[in-house]
Amino acid sequence: MAARIDPAPQPYEPDMEETLAKLMPEGVEPLLLFRMLARSPRLFRRFMAGGLLDKGSISLRDREIAIDRTCGRCGGEYEWGVHIALFADAVGFGPAEIKATATGDANDACWNPRERLIVRLVDQLHDTSMIDDALWAELAAEFEDEQLLELIMLTGFYHMVSFVVNATRLPAEPYGARFPTGV
């Protein structure tokens, strides 16, 4: 299935070309998502400014649990697949963690207590757009305020990313992982 919106044609504006070149490892074409967003340099720049893929207040593993779980819950296979392909090994995800981000829940044996809290945060935000007082108390005992804000913002940002990739029907990147069967 083809994407509903084609990627921007080259050549890109000079600063856009430079930004796209920095986003991926040498020799790897920028993601279809980035090239599609490059149709609107303003939207692309705003998207990149909000991405939260820098070294933040949480570990790379915590970040990937939040991102992958959010994309899994939203059915955002394109983005989930990119993150699994590019980060799963780096954060020590095995088959159980990969599957759990897409189909499991916070009680899966692959998660430690801290990670269960992240999954619960993502799931509760996804289901209710809120975090109840009981979960907040557990989160506040484990995470600093800055970390909680980052986890909440990551969840919201990757809801938006999932909306974009789903609505535009972006096909999976050639190297992107696919959801486990049944998702």
Score class of each variant (00 low, 15 high):
V161Q: 01
L139C: 08
Y158N: 01
M160A: 14
Q10W: 03
L117F: 09
R120P: 04
E29D: 06
A141S: 12
D15C: 05
G104R: 04
M153L: 12
A134L: 08
G94W: 03
P95H: 04
A167T: 14
W111Y: 06
R46S: 10
E97R: 12
R46N: 05
W111L: 07
M36D: 14
G94H: 05
P171D: 14
A66W: 00
P7H: 01
A66P: 09
R63F: 01
E18D: 07
L43C: 14
G72L: 06
N166E: 11
R63M: 10
L53V: 15
L60R: 14
L23W: 04
L32Q: 07
A38E: 11
I5E: 07
F93R: 07
G81L: 04
T103H: 04
F157R: 08
K99L: 11
P41G: 00
T19G: 04
D105N: 15
I65H: 10
L170M: 14
A49R: 06
V119K: 06
P14L: 01
D145T: 11
G156H: 00
W136I: 10
V119L: 12
P7E: 10
P11G: 00
F87H: 14
E79W: 03
D133L: 09
G27H: 03
E79K: 05
T103Y: 03
M48A: 02
E29C: 03
P174T: 07
F34G: 13
A3H: 10
Q124A: 12
L135K: 03
N107K: 09
G51N: 15
R114C: 11
A140C: 06
D105L: 05
L53Q: 13
A109T: 01
A90W: 03
D89A: 14
I98E: 05
L43V: 10
Q124I: 07
T128A: 12
V165N: 01
K99W: 13
L52A: 11
M24H: 08
E13H: 10
